[in-house]
Design a protein around this nucleic acid. Structure first.
Length: 145
DNA sequence: GCCAACGTTGGC
DNA sequence: GCCAACGTTGGC
C-alpha cells in the first residue's frame, strides 16, 4: 500500500464535507495539474492518504482511502483530466499543522514542504508513521492513541 | 489581500 | 523549442 496527501481548501471541500459522504466516498475532481493527475493514476484501491486543509487551517485533519481508481473527471469534457474517488476513514485527533511539519527535521523532505503548490502528493512510509504519531493516531488501525 | 513560486500557454 | 506573459496556488 502506498501513501498520499490530498489538499483541499476547506471553503470549497472540507473534511466535514468528506465525512458527510461516508463510505460512499466522493470524486476528487477539479485537478488540472499533470503531476497531481499522474499520482492519482498510480493510486490503487485501499491506498491511504492524509486530508490537508490549505489556505485556511493549514493542517492535516483526516485520513482517507482510495475507493475508486482514476477515471474521467465528471466536471470537465477535457479527456486529459481524471481522478480517483476517496472516502473518509478517520479523524486525526491532534491535527498536524504545516508549522509542525516544517518544525520537524525528519519531515523536511515532505512534499508538503518542498512542493508547496502540488495538490496531490506522495507520502513516504516513514513520513506516514511520523505524522500519524504526531497526530495521535495509530498508523495501522487508525485508532486514537 | 498580497505576492512569490511555479505551471501553462502561445507567439515566434 | 525557447521564453515571455499570464494564471493559479497557497502561505503569510
Amino acid at each position: 500500500m502506498r501513501y498520499w496527501l490530498f489538499k483541499s481548501e476547506p471553503f470549497k471541500w472540507s473534511w466535514d464535507h468528506q465525512k458527510a459522504k461516508g463510505d460512499a466516498g466522493e470524486e476528487w475532481d477539479g485537478i488540472r495539474n499533470y503531476q497531481a493527475r499522474n499520482f492519482m493514476r498510480e493510486m490503487k484501491i485501499g491506498d491511504r492518504a492524509f486530508f490537508y486543509h490549505s489556505n485556511e487551517g493549514l493542517e492535516i485533519v483526516g485520513v482517507v482511502e482510495v475507493s475508486a481508481l482514476s477515471a474521467p473527471d465528471s466536471t470537465t469534457d477535457d479527456e486529459r483530466w481524471d481522478c480517483v474517488h476517496v472516502r473518509a476513514l478517520a479523524d486525526v485527533p491532534k491535527p498536524v499543522t504545516l508549522k509542525d511539519v516544517k518544525a520537524t527535521v525528519s519531515l523536511s523532505d515532505m512534499s508538503l514542504v518542498t512542493s508547496m503548490r502540488l495538490s496531490v502528493q506522495p507520502v513516504k512510509d516513514k513520513e506516514w508513521a511520523i505524522v500519524c504519531e504526531m497526530g495521535g493516531i495509530d498508523p495501522v488501525t487508525l485508532k486514537p492513541v
